[in-house]
Structure formats: structure tokens, C-alpha cells
Design a protein around this nucleic acid. Structure first.
Length: 447
DNA sequence: TCTGGGGTCCTAGGACCC
DNA sequence: TCTGGGGTCCTAGGACCC
């Protein structure tokens, strides 16, 4: 589609709903910047922050990025480079980073309560209201940047756009190109300029386009963000699924992803670690598994939750290609949801016994607590749908089809939800057992 | 020859994010 | 020799249910 037509299509899409405006505030080189707040002498020193066991770089200063060091590069692989350029390495201090993160959020909340803490170093703000007190988006953005710097000592960039994806893109531009001075608004920008930036930016930079998808896109000559903007969302959905379709609309300025002000309840808690050296004995694995359970259970209690099941897993080192590999996990359902460390430990150790195999050299062990959620099952939500909205179109279609094939004798399965009260439906559902002998003809008759 | 079909649950795996 | 840890969502296939 020619560029000129696309603009008109975008505006017609937007007529129905008022356009939100998002700002993404992201701390530059977060862990590195945190260390520098407390050790100002590190300013402008090329440095990295290392993962657990000091394995690989999880944060790089601008100087190190300029040397071409990628995120996640193992420390041993960059030692030569480090020597050559005087790269300093620091072990990570997550307690400190967590604390700094809260302080940043506090500052941002003063601008607007419409805020989503997206990660330890990033927040989305919805800024339509806050904007009224400023001349324009750039002034607001600069004010945010200054305020965070003054209060916490941390440098941030601000990206502004009509969707979260565009705000992310804007933030990327603000970080990459000095002329934005840390604040970029792709919404206020002239279309021609935006499209220019988009065609200069690789498609892989788009939020939600990772390595694999970028590769497939490039194979069909979708190289830049602009190329993706021109692709048909329907075609993208065909190939990559619904997430990708949403992403395309977001790029075109139709916001599909809402601000999530209240963090949804966690579905799982993971505690895992790599070993410093490879482990072969079940006893050693059991010790580490017990430690992980204790940590996970602690997190569980902190958030006042209980686990309905527990998963244990152990893995060999995937980087050792010439060694036999063993990755296995087992999930243990817990009859009564619990937050009790001893109960969870017993379950975990029983699980470990099931999956452990001698003669493998294990690199990593961990546990996952599967939390009890109040999210309704698909069937429950279907029922609620019927209760609130009346019989939905797709359900009626299914009913019609059944009636067409089998006559009006009965309606089964999901359609059975149309019969009786919620309680009756739940009873039927609870009564299911291997011995359940009800014949078709005994099932409830429709209407 | 044709042989019911839709739903749930579970698991595994792939993709993505920071 | 040495390669993080914690999350999410989606999909597909098989077992099982009625």
C-alpha cells in the first residue's frame, strides 16, 4: 500500500475511540547506572554488571556497548577485550536495584497515577491528563527526565506514542539518536519524518519481534519497521499468530494493549540457579532443590498466596554439545494448596527422585510453584458470558449445528451450560468420574 | 465405502520480554 | 575451565470425557 493511503486509513481507524497517549520511561543501562550513583568515580569508566556466579554480562555501560559487546556475553569470552579497554566488572546487587527502581516509580507517580510498572527499569505512563499542565509532550518528557535525575541520580529516556509499541519505538529512538536529547515523541512528529526513522530502524527492534520472527520477516524482505508497517496485519496473523497481528495494529497507531495499572496476580514463582560446578549426585541436587523451595515458599508467603502444584526440574549444561543431555521436569499436584515449606520440600524431593538419573552431569536445578488463581476456567467464563450477555453468537452457531445434525434431541458439552443454573452446571461438572455412565439420551434436553 | 465431534486437561515446546 | 534468572502468552497434540 502506498504511504499516502496508509495515513488516511490510520485516521479512519481512530475515529471511533479517543486516542490514548503513552509514555515509556526507561532507565539507561539500569544496573550500571545504579552502581554509578553510589560510586561516581565509575562515571565514564567502561563497565559491566555480571549475572549470578559472575557468568555473563547482564548490563553494559555505553562505552562497552560501543565496543560491540552483546547482552549476555559470557565474562570469560570478553576477558581479553576487558584487559585491552580496562572494562570493570561488578557482581550484581539486586536488592539495591530493586530499591532504586521503587524510587524511580515514586517520582513518576507524581506525574500521573495512570502508570504501569512494566519491569525493574521501565514504566508506561498514560499522559493525556498530565499533559494539560505542559506546553507540549517534549516539555513534559524533559521534566520527567530531569525530575528522575535530580531525585535518584539515574538517567532516563522518554518515548511517547499513541500505542505502547509506538512508545517503545520512540524510546528506542530517544536512546539511539542524540538529537532527541533523551525525549522522543513519534505522535507529534510529521508522518514523513516518522516513516523515515522507521525505514532506518531494523524490524527486530520492534517490541515483540525477536530473533526468530525477525529472521522469517527478513526472508520475505520485511527488513525495517516501515516494511512491517506496510505489511497486512491479516497476513501477519496467518503466519505468526494473533500476537503479531496486534503488534501490527499497534505500529499503525491503533492501541490494542492497555495500561495495566494493577499488576495481575502471578501465576508462578520460580527459584532456580546454575551450579558453580557440575553436579552428579542426587544428594547434592536435593540440597539445592531444598534451598530453592525455601526461597520460593518465602516469596509465596510474602504475597499471601498458596501453591496448588509444584514443578521440579534439573538440566545438564546445554552448551556442552558433546556431553549427553538430560532436561526433565515433573509436576506434583498438591491435594491441599499450601505455603508450608516442609510440605513443599517433601513434594519437591519426591519429584526429584522421579526424574533424577545417575551418570549425567547437571548444571542447573530449580522449582516452580504453580499458584492457585481465581481466573475462571474457559467453561466458567463461557457460562458467565451466557449469563451476562445472553447466548453468544458462536455458541448459538454450535447449537444450530448440533441441532442440524442430530435433531433437537439434546445439547451436550459446553452447550449444556445453557441448561439450568450455574450450580447445576457445576454439580454436573463435579460429578464427572471414570464410572460416570450417563448415556447420551439421559443428558439434559435443550429447552 | 462410510464409522461423532466438541470440550477439557495436561504436557511440552516455542516465542517473546527484561 | 568459565555461558543468568524470572516471567508471560500461544499453540499443538494426546488422553479422556460425554
Amino acid at each position: 500500500m502506498p504511504v499516502a493511503e496508509m495515513g488516511s486509513e490510520m485516521s479512519s481507524n481512530l475515529q471511533t475511540t479517543p486516542t490514548p497517549l503513552f509514555a515509556l520511561v526507561d532507565v539507561n543501562n539500569f544496573y550500571v547506572s545504579c552502581e554509578r550513583v553510589f560510586q561516581p568515580k565509575l562515571e565514564e569508566v567502561p563497565m559491566v554488571v555480571l549475572s549470578n556466579n559472575d557468568g555473563c554480562a547482564v548490563a553494559r555501560s555505553a562505552e562497552v556497548k560501543a565496543l560491540g559487546v552483546k547482552m549476555g556475553t559470557p565474562w570469560f569470552q570478553m576477558k581479553d577485550l576487558a584487559k585491552q579497554h580496562g572494562i570493570q566488572a561488578y557482581s550484581s546487587n539486586y536488592t539495591l536495584y530493586g530499591d532504586m527502581s521503587s524510587r524511580v516509580v515514586e517520582v513518576l507517580r507524581a506525574f500521573t497515577p495512570n502508570l504501569e510498572v512494566y519491569s525493574i527499569d521501565e514504566s508506561f505512563l498514560q499522559i493525556e491528563t498530565a499533559l494539560k499542565q505542559y506546553q507540549d509532550t517534549i516539555e513534559l518528557g524533559q521534566k520527567i527526565k530531569q525530575e528522575v535525575k535530580d531525585t535518584t541520580g539515574l538517567p532516563v529516556c522518554v518515548g511517547i506514542g499513541a500505542s505502547k509499541t509506538l512508545a517503545k519505538l520512540a524510546n528506542h529512538l530517544a536512546k539511539k539518536h542524540k538529537q532527541f536529547v533523551g525525549v522522543c515523541d513519534v505522535n507529534g512528529m510529521a508522518k514523513e519524518e516518522l516513516y523515515q526513522w522507521m525505514s532506518e530502524t531494523e524490524v527486530g527492534e520492534v517490541w515483540g519481534v525477536g530473533k526468530q520472527i525477525a529472521k522469517k520477516l527478513k526472508a520475505q524482505n520485511i527488513q525495517s519497521v516501515f516494511d512491517l508497517l506496510q505489511a497486512s496485519p491479516q497476513a501477519m496473523r496467518q503466519q505468526f499468530g494473533v500476537v503479531m497481528e496486534r503488534l501490527c495494529y499497534e505500529l499503525r497507531g491503533t492501541s490494542c494493549l492497555q495500561l495495566e495499572e494493577v499488576a495481575p496476580a502471578k501465576q508462578q514463582i520460580i527459584a532456580s540457579r546454575s551450579f558453580g560446578k557440575l553436579v552428579t549426585s542426587q544428594v547434592e541436587l536435593a540440597e539445592s532443590v531444598a534451598t530453592h523451595v525455601a526461597r520460593a515458599a518465602e516469596k509465596l508467603r510474602t504475597q499471601n498466596s498458596t501453591a496448588g502444584a509444584l514443578t521440579v526440574f534439573i538440566q545438564t549444561n546445554p552448551f556442552k554439545q558433546n556431553e549427553p543431555q538430560h532436561h526433565q521436569s515433573v509436576t506434583i499436584p498438591l491435594a491441599d494448596p499450601t505455603d508450608n515449606t516442609l510440605t513443599l520440600t517433601n513434594a519437591a524431593l519426591a519429584g526429584l527422585k522421579q526424574i533424577y538419573q545417575a551418570n549425567f552431569r547437571y548444571k542447573k536445578a530449580g522449582v516452580i510453584l504453580n499458584l492457585i488463581s481465581d481466573k475462571p476456567t474457559a467453561q466458567q467464563s463461557l457460562f458467565e458470558d451466557i449469563e451476562t450477555k445472553g447466548k453468544s453468537a458462536h455458541l448459538m452457531k454450535a447449537v444450530d449445528e448440533i441441532n442440524m445434525r442430530f435433531g433437537n434431541a439434546f445439547i451436550r458439552s459446553a452447550a449444556a451450560g445453557t441448561n439450568g443454573t450455574k450450580e447445576e452446571w457445576q454439580m454436573r461438572s463435579n460429578n464427572r468420574s471414570p464410572n460416570y455412565t450417563t448415556k447420551w439420551d439421559e443428558l439434559p434436553v435443550a429447552r
